[in-house]
Every structure is written in C-alpha cells, then in structure tokens.
Design a protein around this nucleic acid. Structure first.
Lengths: 153, 153
DNA sequence: TTTTTAGTTCTGTATTTGCAGAACTAACTG
DNA sequence: CAGTTAGTTCTGCAAATACAGAACTAAAAA
C-alpha cells in the first residue's frame, strides 16, 4: 500500500496522541499505521519500510504492543512473514479498562482519608465526596455499555 | 507537620501513580504531599524540606501544577510565604476533563475512517461501532453527574 | 549442507529528562 | 542604604530513553 501525505500526517498525529499517553514514539506511530492501513494487517517488513525505522526498534515496539494485548499477528500458509494487526475487536474491554484505570485514584483517596486528621474538615469532606462519586462511577460502567447496546438496537 | 513512614510511603505511591499518567516524578510526589498533609496548605519551604529536593525543582513543579490548574497558593497577612494547596474543589471538572480526554480518540477514529478504503469492511465496521460508542459516551457524561447528585440526596 | 529469510537480542550512542546548585530578582526589614 | 527572605531562572550534569546497527538465532529453502 502506498501512503499519501494525508496518511503520513495522520499517522504522526496519532503517534503524538499516544506519546502523550506515555507510550514511546514508535509505538504510537505503529498504532497509527495499523489503523490507517487498508488491509488492517501489515507485515514486519512493511512497518520497517513505511515508518523508515530499524528492525530492532520495530521488534521491540511490537513485543510491547503484544504484551499489552493491543496487537496480534497472524501467518499465512507458505509465507513465513508475520502480519500484525490491532485488536480492534476488543475496544469495549480496552475502553472499560481505561475507565477503571482512571477510577484507580479512589484507592489512594481512601488511603489518604485514613491517614488524615480532622484539622481541615472541608478538605476531608470534598475528598469523601470524590471517593463516593468514584465508587458510583465504577458501578455505572456496565450499565453504560448496556444502554449503548439498547440504543443501537 | 511530621510525616510518618506511612505518610511517606503513601506519598511515593501516589507519586508513581501520577508518573504513569505522564507527569514528572516530583510533580506526582508534590500532589501526594498536598493530599496527605493535615493542613491542606503547605509552604514552599516545607515542600522542599519534606521531599528533600531543591528549590528550583519545586519551583518548576509548582509552576507546572498551577498552569494545569491543579494547584493554587494563598498568602497570609504579615507572612511573605506562599501556601500551596490542591484545587480539590474542582474534582468534578477535573474528572470530566479526563473523561473527555480519553474520548478524544474519537476524532482520530473518524479521520481514519475517512481515509480508509473498503478493503477490510469488518475492520471499518468495528471502528464505526467504536466511534458511535464514544459519541454516545460523551453525551452521557453530564447525565452521569446528574444521577450521582440525585443519588446523594 | 549451505544459504536465505524473518525476526530477535545485544551494544553503543544521540537525545531528552529531571533535577541540583548557583546566580539572580523582587520585595520586605532594620 | 545594606541585609534578609522567598522564590525564580540559568547552567550543567547524571541518568534514562529511544533508537540504529551489528551480531545472532531458528526455521525454511536450495
């Protein structure tokens, strides 16, 4: 597949978006490439060529993506190459994980509330509010997906 | 205020939690200190002493936190020191921003769908599903806060 | 068996990060 | 005014990051 300037520019922007989420630059750009690529499946070699980086860098980045469960490869009969693809099918689980992750802060809030004295009751009160909200939020997540399903039908 | 081992250990864990979110180490630990500190307000000097870091590092970290709107300082009559505190009052807005931020990926998904051909219809279909969900999700956020408010009353 | 292919692992390095320390600024104090 | 206080900005460096290139491995092909 030949990438246009528009493709390349979009890949770069998707790359920096993921960099801001803490991933290393190449990992983000590989996600971009796998998203934009027509076939959805891209060989190791093509990743190296399209992004103009070394094999070692691609190898490490793909190992990382597979470890994170964001990427898989398949093979084809009579072809030794690996074709890498994003696990787009898992977007529900992935998104749910992200939501659970931002709610992780609740654990810390609760620990903080345990060690705090009553010197600043207003502060403590707001923290308790926040903790209660996070608890409520976590409970609401499954219902959110349910409502989406209904709305789709 | 004297910090116990438990306080210090909690501050460190809150620190690494924020590091994983992309912040620099000291910024995370300052958030930890401001959370566990009894008064809620901590002077510049005390931050330097409690965390055992340089004034310059603290200055830069606090400038960052203030720019991000996560921290403010107040002053006291006849006292030139600045007392720094987290904006705990803003937790609703902050949390909403975080939710909007993870939904940001929708923009990219939509741009991706525009440049993709129909070579892999299943991939495109799943991406459209995800985009629709993200759209639905964004709409649901205000209602989420509303339901929490009602449930509280 | 030797050679090729496909990818991994190791080694080195340019760049970036995160902070320390010193110099500096601005405002207050004596 | 000179000296002190509170914090900022500048300079430099040690450590971590992100990658290139080369050496290596394992399996298939010739």
């Amino acid at each position: 597949m030949v990438l246009t300037e528009k493709h390349k520019e979009l890949i770069e922007r998707i790359g920096v978006f993921h960099e801001h989420k803490g991933m290393q630059p190449l990992v983000g750009r590989i996600i971009g490439l796998l998203l934009v690529h027509d076939e959805g499946e891209v060989s190791f070699d093509e990743i190296v060529e399209q992004l103009g980086v070394s094999k070692s860098a691609v190898s490490n980045a793909l190992t990382f993506l597979q470890a994170k469960g964001r990427c898989v490869y398949s093979t084809r009969p009579g072809d030794r190459k690996r074709y890498f693809a994003l696990k787009v099918s898992d977007w529900r689980e992935d998104f749910e994980k992200e939501l659970q992750n931002i709610a992780e802060i609740q654990k810390f809030i609760d620990e903080v509330l345990e060690v705090r004295t009553e010197k600043n009751p207003e502060f403590n009160c707001r923290m308790r509010d926040f903790s209660n909200f996070l608890c409520f939020f976590k409970q609401e997540i499954p219902a959110l997906f349910e409502r989406f399903k209904k709305q789709q039908a």
